[in-house]
Design a protein around this nucleic acid. Structure first.
Lengths: 337, 337
DNA sequence: CTGAAAGCGCTAACAT
DNA sequence: ATGTTAGCGCTTTCAG
């Protein structure tokens, strides 16, 4: 089934068929209909190879993820990929997924699809080694970063409204009459975590709530459940009167929740807890976790849209979009007793 | 950088370059060297579009996964994908990953890459709706199934040695002098589970160990941790003297372990437990879980190899390969007290 | 052992 | 409004 077959069936030239496919306006409605019918009847799909050959485009987008992000049990980045895959349909793209080591090797290699020029652009999701970013830059391919922004240069990116999320989470607690509110974080140099913390501080400030060293624990090495447990332990020691906790992500929130329970407090009666991410188990934990929902699939979707714009406009103007978050009220927060 | 540039640089014709690339034997060592040097110096990579156009192949392989398999927290299928991605390098394939709904919709649609003929073959990992299998069959594309085998027709597949695994797990317990050994299963109509159970029974039989209704619980609806807990509860009620448990997978093993502990027994002193899969946390649980390791990446790797063979031999002879398993002895099993 | 040339399916500039 | 045609980069006969 080639364009020739369609042309023959519709009794037109192959050029006309091509024009119809590309929605060229200078084709009469009549022939357009004839051709479209033929296309449908023959179940014709243009050959991507032939198209690629003349257009010098592949129609593929590379999707780069670190191995641990891809394999980790909370399917955060897999959700982003899924959103991208989905949106790719609307732009006739195919997505080539590949993983890279999380830490730069001495001999960092670029993904094969970059070396072989088998993609028109690249989506990089999550933090990746600096080395990779600089290697990628040498190839002057359009790049869209998701949930990550390389320092020191203008880039196109799709980002989470971390500041807004931190703000909303905190204001939710404030509205529940909490005044002694603590932030639990780890890996605080990571921009996302830092911005959540900033939103937290901003909200406290906006409501004239004092803030001091007893109101945050941010020196954990990572943002795992275990770190959440440890951070909460420290917090309860230095600030026993705390009535609400905003954890920088759901994992830490669950760790904190466990610790709080182990120490004999109940959630949310004694202490309210808010997380960030809205992972799957936040819906089924006991109590169900109030958290800031991040529209994961939408992140991927927006990344593809942005890539499409980049690819269409020859002028490579970098541009960032921020996707909104949403406060999901569940049962881990309550009015201060 | 086209084949022409290489030809010019190496002072030969483009045909010669092409022949060198394809390792044609009737090229002198001398020109081969000249050409290969030129290729390296120019960092030349053949255009896939041009190749595809003439060879009528895309160089792509489709990888189909159900959505819940892709998103589930235990990265079993993501590991398989990774193995496939990795092996794809060696055969110059690109892999297009896509997910399908786990339950057939009224209007089940084939993945886009099938409809648009943008793949040379398809790898299907894990159980998928029957509807999808039959739709796929209409397209006469080479298909390799992984960890799944559609009923009622010859297919190429890469399978796990479930029987052997069940056998080894059970024999391990027998060697530790256990005689009252139970099997915990769920979703028993699933071939993989059934074969593990078969291996269990075979091993008991081979060692002349009696087997009756008290030695298995297989009526759980699924193979989750919760089901493992429930199954163990039932087991301890009907068979209080049990000293060893073989759970059909690690999730159920962990559930069972929890239950056994909650009931006041200790693992492995009172009761030994063996799982199946070797998930990540089996290494870090308390006690660390003895289990049957499934080489997940190897499954994907073998799938690509098999696909490659299918694609090379015109005669589409379906063929199955079974990858071996390995007993990993950790601390959840011990000699019977 | 190597080169010339046809042609894969499509797009886009140019003709009509 | 539609058709003709060159050519994208490569593989593959067929000649030499």
């Amino acid at each position: 089934m080639t364009i020739k077959d369609v042309a023959k069936k519709a009794q037109v030239s192959i050029a006309t068929v091509s024009l119809v496919i590309h929605n060229n306006k200078r084709i009469s409605e009549e022939t357009k209909l004839k051709v479209n019918n033929a296309i449908k009847e023959l179940n014709y799909h243009p050959s991507r190879s032939a198209r690629g050959l003349v257009s010098q485009k592949t129609g593929n987008i590379g999707f780069i993820l670190t191995e641990n992000h891809f394999l980790r049990s909370e399917p955060f980045y897999t959700q982003i990929f899924l959103g991208a895959e989905f949106e790719a349909h609307n732009h006739e793209f195919y997505i080539l997924l590949t993983t890279v080591p999380a830490i730069a090797k001495s001999k960092t290699k670029l993904p094969r699809f970059v070396l072989e020029k088998n993609v028109d652009g690249i989506i990089v999701a999550g933090t990746v080694p600096h080395k990779l970013v600089s290697l990628l830059d040498e190839h002057s391919l359009p790049i869209v970063y998701v949930d990550y922004y390389p320092e020191g240069k203008e880039s196109s990116a799709v980002l989470i409204d971390n500041f807004g999320g931190g703000k909303e989470a905190t204001e939710h607690l404030i509205q529940l009459h909490h005044r002694n509110i603590a932030f639990l974080g780890g890996d605080i140099t990571h921009p996302s975590i830092k911005h959540r913390f900033d939103g937290f501080k901003w909200a406290l400030d906006a409501h004239a709530i004092p803030f001091d060293n007893n109101n945050y624990i941010v020196d954990e090495v990572d943002t795992s459940r275990e770190s959440g447990y440890k951070a909460a332990e420290k917090l309860l020691k230095i600030n026993p009167g705390v009535t609400a906790i905003f954890a920088c992500n759901d994992a830490m929130a669950f760790g904190a929740m466990q610790c709080v329970k182990d120490e004999g407090y109940s959630v949310p009666q004694d202490i309210s807890i808010v997380g960030f991410d809205d992972v799957e188990i936040a819906r089924t934990s006991d109590p169900e976790l109030t958290t800031i929902a991040v529209p994961k699939q939408e992140l991927g979707c927006e990344a593809v849209r942005l890539m499409n714009r980049l690819l269409e406009s020859k002028t490579v103007t970098s541009h960032s979009v921020t996707v909104g978050i949403e406060l999901i009220k569940r049962n881990s927060t309550a009015v201060k007793q």
